[in-house]
Amino acid sequence: MRLSSSAVRLIIPAASLAVLLAAVFYMQPRAMSYTGLNLLFNLAVPIALATIAQMLIMSVNDLDLSMGAFVSFCACVAATFLQTSPAIGVLIFLGAIAVYAGIGVVIHLRQLPSIVVTLGMSFVWGGLAVLLLPSPGGAAPGWVRWLMTVKPPLVPMAIVASVIIAAVTHYVVMRSSFGVLIRGVGGNNRSVERAGWSVVGIRAAAYALAGLFAVLAGIALVGLTTAADANIALRYTLLSIAGVILGGGEFVGGRVSPIGAVIGALTLTLAGSFLSFMRISPDWQIGAQGAILIVVLALRLFLNRVEKREKNR
């Protein structure tokens, strides 16, 4: 049986997730239950959504350094306006998505480095979040809370949600013609343009879609934490980038994998739980997370080499 190259790319992230999960189950057999799994993967849903958003930006060869600040801002809006006056909340979200599309257009038209523009935007989103919620507070809208804590039969919500996210984005990015165009811009900007497509339009759409997923990440996060804070998701910027890379994505060339990105996000979430089960002193928790990241990526290099050797034979 011949595996497609995209399937081969998925093997490593999936295997690392499985190994990590097995290790957690070995150390804490009680985690092998409905509640256990739910606790382990609870925080994965917003991280997975943010990772998908980052992946969309990366598929057009850009990088979004404002992801954490933007998700924090969305969480603040969800905990304030979306709860008290839903109509205004939805309008703010639509406006924010429009701003994201606008950023995509500006970056393309003026040929600006995305890192710097999004760096500037991270200050703007952070400032808006501080204006909305100067101190931690707000409340999650009832339906969001319900959605994030609902207990479907057999499989916990966090897993169901992750599968849905992976399936939907896989369809949009890998199967639809729109997804092909986005990845085409990342792969070869000029040939997409020569084929008669508007690269500005595609880029704007990719950014808008990323904005939409980041908004969903903010809402999901508030559903879990029930309150928000202006700094609630700042670490999502680096987590989302690491998630995409762990899932087999590349920084350039439009080579991304939505399923891989979701698996990457799950792996990163699980790494946190794994370390607390290991009883590693809190001093070394961040360091151990870095080490896990390195080990997984080293594994990927090793498997890539093996794959190459097989091909050359």
């Binding site: 040929q111 523009v117 200050f123 952070g126 204006l131």
Partner: peptide, 28 residues
């Protein structure tokens, strides 16, 4: 200005400087 407005203006000023100074060079 309060912390929020200060952050927003810092961000907008950074972007404005990039818009004014950049763009002539091809970035990628």
């Amino acid at each position: 200005f309060g912390a929020g407005v200060r952050l927003i203006l810092t961000g907008l000023i950074i972007i404005a400087v990039i818009l004014a100074a950049g763009g002539r060079r091809v970035a990628r």
